[in-house]
């Protein structure tokens, strides 16, 4: 598939791929904003949710925050390597990021298994419904990001489409950003 000339133009000064990623993030902000806004509306109206929230595992959440922050670091280092034309290094760093994503999901899996065994299922009460909904939607983004990243890394290893390293990086930082807010909302505020 040959790219049309349209893709190569840049009247705004922002390359087309990056511009599109910003629009994706803009619409994602409203999606997560709607969900977290709805959660906050209920949370502030229901002081008893603090009690429900006390059963979340802060340490697991904190560890996952650390994992995502570190994977963001490797993503931005990959971008830096791609800017310098070093595709192999960028690919390796992207793989490190993917390992971070995998770690995040594994921790999440253990956490959820434990919580569900304790009886805190998605139907337990409003807090847990939002907990699974918000963290689940975020988890889907982690999975999607990791899969795309594998493709980008495969291309980057061949020194192709290096600009995409930056694009998937920006998306990954956004996923990290969402988690930065999910962590206090779901884990710390008790």
């Amino acid at each position: 598939m040959v790219k049309p000339i349209a893709t190569l133009r840049s009247a705004t000064g922002v390359p087309t791929g990056r511009l599109a990623v910003w629009w994706v993030i803009a619409s994602e902000i409203v999606i997560f904003g709607g969900l977290l806004g709805a959660y906050l509306l209920h949370r502030l109206g229901h002081p008893e949710w603090a009690t429900y929230a006390s059963h979340t595992n802060t340490w697991a959440g904190a560890f996952n925050t650390l994992v995502l922050l570190s994977s963001s670091l490797s993503a931005v280092l990959a971008h830096n390597a791609a800017e310098k034309g070093n595709g192999a290094r960028a690919a390796n760093l992207l793989l490190v990021t993917c390992v971070g994503a995998l770690t995040f999901l594994v921790v999440k899996g253990f956490e959820w298994t434990h919580e569900i065994q304790e009886g805190f299922t998605i139907t337990a009460n409003g807090f847990w419904s939002f907990y699974y909904c918000a963290a689940g939607l975020h988890g889907l983004h982690v999975i999607a990001g990791a899969i795309i990243m594998l493709f980008v890394a495969a291309d980057a290893r061949k020194n192709q489409e290096l600009q995409r390293v930056e694009l998937i990086g920006i998306y990954w930082h956004f996923v990290d950003l969402v988690w930065i807010f999910l962590f206090p909302l779901l884990y710390i505020a008790k």
Partner: peptide, 25 residues
């Protein structure tokens, strides 16, 4: 469209969970 549809997508997830999983959003 892009700026307004977000909350409804979140809401669609919530309503779908209400229908299929029995949550109480």
């Amino acid at each position: 469209f892009m700026a307004s549809v977000g909350p409804l997508i979140a809401g669609a997830f919530m309503l779908l969970f209400d229908q299929l999983l029995g949550t109480g959003f």
